[in-house]
Simulated scan of single mutants.
Amino acid sequence: MISKLINEFETLGLYFGLAALFFFIGMAIQDVLKKGNVPFFGRAVVWLVLFLGCSGFIAKGLIQVFWQGAGVS
């Protein structure tokens, strides 16, 4: 029972930690883009790449959850 609870806390801590990391990376990128006077197209490319990285991580997590629920792996 305790080991299951610890595993759940570790999983939640990992997910919240990664979410906070992505948030702070986004804030740092926004600050650098503002201070560097980057044109709109450059900002759009930077945010697109950041979004695709985050969405790939989220998609991986969802696929993993669905596969484990179906008993595939």
Rank of each mutant, 00 (worst) to 15 (best):
M1Q: 12
I2S: 09
I2A: 15
I2T: 02
I2G: 00
I2W: 05
S3T: 06
S3A: 02
S3L: 14
K4S: 11
K4M: 08
K4A: 05
L5E: 12
L5V: 15
L5M: 11
L5G: 11
L5I: 14
I6L: 14
I6V: 15
N7H: 11
N7Y: 12
E8V: 15
F9W: 13
F9P: 06
F9H: 06
F9G: 00
E10T: 13
T11E: 07
T11V: 05
L12W: 03
L12H: 12
L14Y: 15
L14F: 03
L14V: 14
L14D: 11
L14E: 14
Y15V: 12
F16W: 13
F16E: 00
F16Q: 12
F16S: 01
G17M: 10
G17W: 07
G17P: 06
L18S: 02
L18Q: 07
L18W: 03
A19M: 10
A19R: 07
A19L: 09
A20H: 04
A20G: 04
A20I: 03
L21K: 07
L21C: 11
F22W: 14
F24G: 10
F24V: 14
F24A: 11
F24N: 05
I25M: 01
G26E: 01
M27G: 11
M27D: 05
M27Y: 04
A28Q: 11
I29D: 14
I29P: 02
Q30C: 01
Q30H: 05
D31A: 09
D31H: 05
L33C: 03
K34W: 01
K35R: 09
G36I: 04
N37I: 00
N37H: 09
P39E: 08
F40W: 13
F40G: 00
F41K: 13
R43W: 02
R43Y: 01
A44T: 15
A44Y: 13
A44Q: 13
A44H: 09
A44I: 04
A44F: 10
A44C: 12
A44L: 15
V45Y: 05
V45T: 08
V45P: 01
V46N: 03
V46E: 02
W47V: 13
L48T: 14
L48R: 04
L50T: 00
L50E: 10
L50Q: 02
L52E: 04
L52F: 12
G53P: 03
S55E: 07
G56E: 09
G56A: 03
F57V: 00
A59E: 02
A59H: 10
A59K: 10
K60L: 09
K60M: 09
K60G: 01
G61A: 15
G61W: 11
G61F: 11
G61M: 15
G61R: 09
L62W: 06
I63F: 15
I63E: 04
I63H: 11
Q64W: 09
F66I: 15
F66Y: 15
W67N: 03
Q68I: 02
Q68E: 13
G69K: 14
A70H: 09
V72Y: 06
V72H: 07
V72C: 06
S73D: 14
S73R: 13
S73C: 15
